[in-house]
């Protein structure tokens, strides 16, 4: 890839130990390029969410995840490092699949990160909140109700609020975990438009179930199948001229996908909402 790599994984292996041991990632080495949107696609339970969360170590809140290998953020290791975890997670922001407002006002949802990380005056915070809400095309919808609870917005608005909240922490990389799958088609489209704008400025890694969405948004695509990377390529090549037979099948929509009977310990297998059209 011609662009600079912002974050990459090196032989990343994640195993969920529990009643039954499940290997979610099987030695994955992939690169994510600067100011590109990389889509991670693949069937349910193939490790997409695990790969995404391992990039900022968010899978570690599950008590039984074991990991080997390394992730490099601008050549700094993410695991074998002295850098504090909260700082890593600030640099690699995460937006959950389910639209999840924090239990505070719209304003404070956006100001949450900045208040933690910096010493801003009220005016500076006002600026940040407005800038970030404009970036996600939400400002005009909420400017007169910034003090009402974030949860009172519609799910689509909440998801854009979540994007603004992540952006406000000034991350280098933004991780989006199927951010449109819980939304109605119109809201999903709005979020997609927002993502399309954002990828000019940010390095975005997005997990998606929707092939169509990946086609519309992605610059690069990673195809993950049962914990292995089957193919990684730029989006055009990936969809028009897939190099791997399995990719071909998956792209054409009649992939002989064997679901691994739902034992994915990562919260990945939920809500296979239809792709937004």
């Amino acid at each position: 890839m011609t662009h600079d790599t912002v974050i990459r994984t090196d032989d990343l292996e994640v195993t969920y130990t529990g009643k039954r041991e499940v290997t979610a990632l099987n030695g994955v080495s992939v690169d994510f390029s600067e100011n590109k949107l990389t889509a991670i696609i693949g069937p349910s339970g193939c490790g997409k969410s695990t790969l995404l969360k391992s990039l900022n170590r968010l899978h570690e809140i599950q008590p039984n995840a074991e990991i080997t290998g390394e992730v490099y953020l601008e050549d700094d290791p993410v695991y074998e490092t002295d850098e504090p975890l909260p700082e890593i997670r600030r640099r690699v922001g995460y937006v959950p699949q389910k639209p999840t407002p924090l239990p505070v006002s719209i304003y404070n949802n956006v100001a949450y990160g900045p208040k933690i990380h910096g010493d801003y005056s009220r005016e500076e915070l006002d600026d940040i909140v407005e800038t970030q809400l404009r970036k996600v095309n939400l400002w005009s919808e909420v400017e007169d109700r910034l003090d009402s609870p974030g949860a009172e917005l519609s799910t689509g608005q909440i998801q854009r609020l979540c994007l603004a909240r992540s952006l406000a922490a000034e991350p280098d990389v933004l991780l989006c975990d199927e951010v449109t799958s819980a939304l109605d088609p119109i809201s999903a489209e709005q979020v997609e438009e927002t993502l399309a704008d954002l990828k000019e400025e940010y390095t975005i890694v997005m997990v998606t179930h929707s092939m169509e969405q990946a086609k519309r948004l992605a610059d690069d695509v990673i195809f993950l199948y049962l914990g292995d990377v089957i193919e990684t390529n730029d989006a055009r090549t990936f969809f028009e001229n897939p190099q791997n037979e399995r990719t071909q099948e998956f792209v054409e929509g009649h992939a002989a996908v064997e679901y691994d009977d739902g034992d994915d310990t990562a919260p990945d297998s939920t809500a296979d909402a239809p792709p937004a059209e």
């Binding site: 700082e87 995460y94 699949q97 389910k98 990160g113 979540c162 909240r165």
Partner: peptide, 29 residues
């Protein structure tokens, strides 16, 4: 409380205690 709340807060770089104090204690309030 759903794990998403924890992820949302930790995912912008909050510490565990900050997450508990400003997010979880309110949500479970």
């Amino acid at each position: 409380l759903p794990d998403e709340l924890r992820e949302a807060s930790l995912g912008v770089g909050a510490t565990k205690w900050e997450t508990i104090r400003s997010v979880l204690l309110r949500a479970a309030g």
